[in-house]
């Protein structure tokens, strides 16, 4: 297969950032099977008391935004947690699998969304793309799957996992 690296003109309407770039990787069921294949799961949602909440914030150094934590007990030991983190532009739902001893087994991103109120401002810049020589143009709304330099950072997830480990210590372990 011959290599290809080609420029693609974007239709004018597409030159804004997609107002929402979103990918769904996994549903809850799929994430459960991805992290703990073949296991069964019992919902064990956790409602944090204000004391627990404070303790978690203190232990992890991360703010707790929700009192409710979606937790499942895994057959044969371990925990499956669905959590969310919010950044400046991104909103990420992810699943964390914890081993029985509270160590992280695996993290899987379930949903990734970037949202902005992007607008076309630079008319001249935009104009240069119109009617260029490329072979195809694209619909942006449904087609944006790969952005080079796509991710802002995974710092929010790192913080989120820190918080979940504190949730384990304070609310799940005993």
């Amino acid at each position: 297969m011959k290599s290809e690296f080609a420029f693609i003109a974007l239709p004018v309407s597409a030159l804004i950032a997609p107002s929402a770039f979103a990918v769904r990787y996994l549903t809850v069921d799929q994430a459960q099977q991805a992290i703990f294949p073949g296991k069964s799961f019992t919902a064990a949602p956790v409602k944090l008391t204000s004391v627990q909440r404070k303790a978690i914030e203190q232990a992890s150094g991360v703010r707790v935004l929700h009192d409710e934590q979606q937790v499942w007990r895994v057959s044969g030991g371990g925990w499956f947690i669905v959590d969310e983190v919010v950044g400046k532009h991104e909103f990420i739902t992810y699943a964390a699998g914890l081993n029985l001893d509270g160590s992280v087994k695996q993290i899987e991103i379930m949903d990734y969304r970037e949202t902005y109120g992007g607008q076309i401002r630079d008319q001249k810049w935009r104009a240069q793309f119109v009617g260029k020589t490329s072979k195809s143009t694209l619909k942006l709304d449904s087609d944006v799957k790969n952005i080079s330099g796509a991710t802002l950072s995974c710092r929010h997830i790192t913080d989120g996992v820190k918080r979940l480990l504190a949730v384990y210590e304070i609310a799940l372990r005993h």
Binding site: I8, L10, E114, G118
Partner: peptide
């Protein structure tokens, strides 16, 4: 198709390559 961010406004897409 891979999109490239606008260098000064990274929340926008500046172009695409195949």
């Amino acid at each position: 198709v891979v999109y490239v961010r606008h260098p000064a406004e990274p929340t926008r897409i500046a172009g695409a390559v195949r």
